[in-house]
Each structure stands twice: as C-alpha cells, then as structure tokens.
Design a protein around this nucleic acid. Structure first.
Length: 303
RNA sequence: GCCGCUGUAGCUCAGUCGGUAGAGCAAUUGACUGAAAAUCAAUGUGUCAUCAGUUCGAUUCUGAUCGGUGGCA
C-alpha cells in the first residue's frame, strides 16, 4: 500500500478564532481552505477571509478561485483538495485543511457518495415544477420513484426532496440505491482538531466581528458586487453577510441597522448548526483556540 | 393638567363572553447521500404590572396606584 499522506484538519464554528490559530503552523505547513464561501473572488469582508498579512506568512489554497456566480460543490472541494494534498506533500510540507464547512470535510474524510453530481438543467426544471405545483406534489412524486428516501426525508425539507428527485431523473436510480461510504479514506492519515469556545463568548465574538465588517466596508463590498452585475441569485451572494442586503433591496422596509442585526442573528444560528455538525465527527481533539501548547507534542508525534 | 389607548414568554403581539393562557421570532437540542453560510426537525418558558373590591373562583369585571404611549393644552 502506498504511504498515507498526513493531513491536519482545523475546524470550528464561525468566529471561533481559526485564522489566528493557524499561525502556529507557519513553519512547515500550507493551508487548504475548507470554507465554502471564501473560495469566491470579490467577497472578502463578509466571508472574513484571511488578509495578506496572514497569507504572506503561510501559503493558502482554495481562496479566490471562482467567481460569485459559479457553484462550488463538495465534489469540487474534494477533487481540488486531493490534488493540493499530493502537491503539498511532494514539497515536503504538511497540508492543513481549515475552515467551517462540515459537509465538505465529511466528504473529504469518507469520500464522495456514489450518487451522481447535480445536473443544472434537471435541477432548474424540477425547481420550476416546484414553483408551479408546490412541495406536496413534489413529495408525492418522490414517494413513487424513491420510497426509501421519501420516508427518510422530513415533510418540509424541500432541499433534500429536490435533490432526491434530481438524482432519480438524472441517473434513473433512486438516491437510496447509492451507498454511503462509512470508513475513512485510506490515502490519508488524519489529525482532527476541533476548536471550541463557551457559547456566550462565541456569540459575542460573532457580534463584534459583524460590527467590524461594517467598519471594514461590507456595505461597499456588496454594492460593488451588484455593480459588477452579480444578481442576488448568484451562489456567492446567498452567503450570510450578503443575502441580508438583497433582502433589504427587495423589501424596502429594512434599514441598514436591521441588516446588521440580521447578519449577527444568522451568523449565530449558523455557528450553532456548525457545532452540531462537528460534534458528530469521531476521533476529534477538541481544544480552546488559545490552548495550542496542549497539543504541540501530539502534533510532533503525528508528523 | 385633561382626554384616549395600553401593560400577557427574552422580543413583537394574540387570547380568555370570569374556570390560572398561545403564535411568530429568539433560545436549547438534533438531523444532514456531490447545492451546505443551504435545507429541515424536536422542545421549554409565564407572580397575565402592583394593591384592593365584587365573585365559589379574577389574568379577564370595577377602583386605586405605578409605568408606557398618542392627542389637546
């Protein structure tokens, strides 16, 4: 068997302090971004991208690599991260995957499911059917073509109902036919570090950081994206920190201060979901971001 | 100062023709099959402003007090 590439993974909820923590890896590592929205160009303030002061000290990958109107899926991430891990390892350095998108991480650790990727044309067609006929009709359709998924997916979960239908219509097979990988991929050795803080402390950091984003020109960044021609439907503009401005545009009754509070709220809710997702991962070393010293020995042993 | 409206969950508010109350949001917990900063699911919470009166029984009716708010001065 070929040698396993050692991979360090640093994850945690938004605003927990990942970027500062990564400076500890300065000497012999390169960072692979695990954030589904930091991949987008022209979106820096709202996604809390590391600045050039950081990226000049440690090489960062998968940042600023696609335009805001392009999709970047879990599959795209795994493919790109695989290539980068090999390259970084060949350079004699250790890849450090870091970010907050748990779904991408799970797909990287266990491998992609065998189900086919999303097909744009089929999805848009199903989407327009959903708008015409409503969710209950789509669910009834799913009951016919994939009874197993129909029972598993919650009644109101439009996202998953649509995805299951999409798989059926693009492959001719029900989603539930495709097996889900349940063991870690053999080409890597993982060292999983989960960063965690007291909830109240995390929420207050989130609030402060949103205020900071406004001071750093979040409003201008959004306006610039719109002026460049990106619509609120673009995948990138669905991000927290941007979609709230789109809502203000369409509602008219919101003030900038409402937008700011909504971004804080959405970020807090998101952080909670991230924590829940990460807690379900096995074999994680959980530490406070200020406690790097506690893991120095274990890291040395790993690498 | 006078007249009116008002005080119910952390917030915004329903409601009880008198039998101690419920929505949304928040919060907490969870799910997650190539869109995931997405999409869902479950679960609490209350001196019904205070004091007195009527009543078998008052958060509900009456009075006073204390807040809030709008109008007239």
């Amino acid at each position: 068997m070929a040698v396993q590439i050692p991979v360090i993974v640093v994850f945690g909820p938004t605003a927990v302090g990942k970027t500062d923590f990564l400076l500890h890896f300065e000497k012999s590592c390169e960072i692979i971004n695990l954030d589904s929205l930091q991949v987008y160009r022209h979106m820096s303030v709202g996604t809390a991208k590391p600045g050039s002061d950081i990226t000049s000290r440690i090489p960062h990958h998968l940042i600023d690599c696609v335009d805001p109107d392009c999709e970047f899926s879990a599959g795209d991430f795994v493919t790109a991260a695989d290539r980068l891990c090999r390259e970084i390892h060949a350079r004699g350095k250790t890849p450090v995957i870091s970010g907050g998108t748990g779904f991408f991480l799970k797909n990287f650790i266990y491998g992609l499911p065998k189900a086919p990727p999303s097909v744009e044309s089929i999805r848009t067609e199903l989407q327009s059917r959903l708008e015409r006929e409503g969710l209950p009709a789509m669910r009834a359709l799913l009951e016919q073509v994939d009874n197993v998924s129909w029972r598993r997916i919650a009644v109101g979960d439009s996202y998953r109902i649509m995805r299951a239908l999409e798989v059926y219509y693009s492959s001719g097979r029900p989603l539930s036919d495709f097996q889900l990988p349940d063991t870690r991929r053999s080409e890597y050795r993982f060292f999983l570090i989960g960063l965690i803080r007291d909830r109240a402390e995390l929420y207050s950091r989130i609030n402060d950081r949103v205020d900071m984003m406004f001071r750093n020109g979040l409003v201008e960044e959004y306006k610039k994206l719109r002026a460049m021609g990106y619509s609120p439907d673009a995948p990138g503009l669905g991000a927290i920190g941007y979609k709230e401005f789109s809502l203000m545009e369409s509602l008219g009754s919101m003030t900038l201060s409402d937008v700011r509070e909504l971004i804080k709220q959405n970020s807090r809710n998101y952080a909670k979901r991230q924590i829940t997702y990460f807690k379900a991962l096995d074999d994680v070393l959980w530490i406070h971001p200020d406690s790097f010293d506690l893991i120095i020995d274990k890291l040395a042993e790993f690498v």
